[in-house]
């Protein structure tokens, strides 16, 4: 900081960096976070323009090209760069379209959990008393169960499918958002600016949503980014065991659901979908770490 003051011209010193600039400076200093964000952007763009990127349909079965190996291997052709699966569908095409499903489910889970969790957390933190106790006990119950187990139970009730899997996963992650919101609301409520706002006559809704909530956002954003990776991982696991996205939809997890049969003769069927899950989840975790460092100085280690 001092060096900057010494070398900068007087005009520069007066212009303090805006919040976005400050965020970007922190975030871009973290190479892992940048790589993660870059990869996510890539998957996102591929998912958006999937139809333009590949000549095949994810459902088209080329019966004359069943279990074709990847192009660089003997017997492979560049028509199917990463080979084909057991019914002759192009794996690369299915991976690209699979990005849509994974990002969609991640988005849906995070939005649902974030929205509901924030609302419930605000209610608990602002109301306190019996409401608070009841809500937190309910959250404890959800937390007591392993997320996949609870998701299994909920999917058993709702029936298998992508949307139901997303709802189930969102419920299992609800407590994280509720706890974070509640804790920040309680911490912020005793601050002077909240008292000032209350004294000047702000109503409950204004206090909660306009005065307090914006100051609780940083940890929520971090949690949402990290929640993305968990959501994708759990959705893939549900797809793998046949309770998430249903075949023939090109979801990465469900693409692996009968991979065990082909493990002896077609390694590419087993390898690529899982690699996409790993890389995408890793990318979200890297970005989440970067966001945490950039947004929340308290959590910095």
């Amino acid at each position: 900081m001092n060096e900057q003051l010494l070398t900068a011209s007087p005009g520069d010193v007066l212009a303090t960096p805006g919040p976005w600039r400050e965020f970007w400076d922190y975030f871009s200093a973290n190479r892992g976070a940048l790589i993660g964000a870059g990869f996510i952007l890539l998957v996102l763009l591929a998912a958006l323009f999937a139809n333009l990127l590949t000549p095949h349909s994810p459902f088209e079965q080329y019966r004359d090209a069943i279990l074709t190996p990847p192009a660089w291997q003997e017997g492979g052709v560049w028509r199917y760069p990463l080979g084909t699966d057991e019914v002759g569908r192009d794996i690369l095409t299915r991976l690209i379209f699979g990005g849509r499903m994974s990002l969609f489910i991640g988005m849906m889970v995070v939005c649902l959990a974030l929205l509901l969790g924030t609302l419930i957390g605000l209610a608990a933190g602002y109301a306190r008393g019996i409401t608070d106790t009841l809500i937190m006990r309910a959250m404890d119950i959800i937390m007591a169960l392993p997320s996949l187990l609870l998701a299994l139970a909920i999917v058993t009730i709702l029936g298998p499918g992508l949307i139901n899997a997303a709802i189930a996963i969102a419920i299992t992650y609800l407590p994280h958002y509720v706890r974070i919101t509640r804790a920040s609301v309680i911490a912020e409520s005793s601050r002077d600016y909240v008292t000032a706002s209350r004294v000047s006559g702000a109503g409950v809704l204004r206090l909660v949503f306009i005065t307090i909530l914006p100051n609780c956002m940083a940890p929520l954003i971090v949690q949402a980014s990290l929640g993305f990776s968990n959501a994708i991982l759990d959705a893939a696991a549900l797809g793998f065991i046949g309770l998430g996205a249903q075949p023939p939809s090109p979801e990465w997890g469900s693409m692996l659901s009968n991979a065990l049969e082909f493990i002896q003769r077609a390694w590419w069927v087993v390898t690529f979908p899982g690699l996409m899950i790993l890389l995408t989840v890793l990318a979200f975790n890297l970005m989440g770490d970067g966001l945490r460092d950039a947004l929340d100085p308290k959590m910095k280690l």
Binding site: S229, L233, A236, A237, F240, I241, G253, L256, A259, L260, I263, W267, V270, T271, P273, G274, L275, I277, L278, V281, L282, N285, L286
Partner: peptide, 18 residues
């Protein structure tokens, strides 16, 4: 450790079997 933390273990199991 970050890679392990991000690992879909059902795939990891398949890969190790492979």
């Amino acid at each position: 450790s970050l890679t392990g933390y991000s690992m879909p273990i059902f795939w990891w199991g398949l890969l190790l079997i492979l």
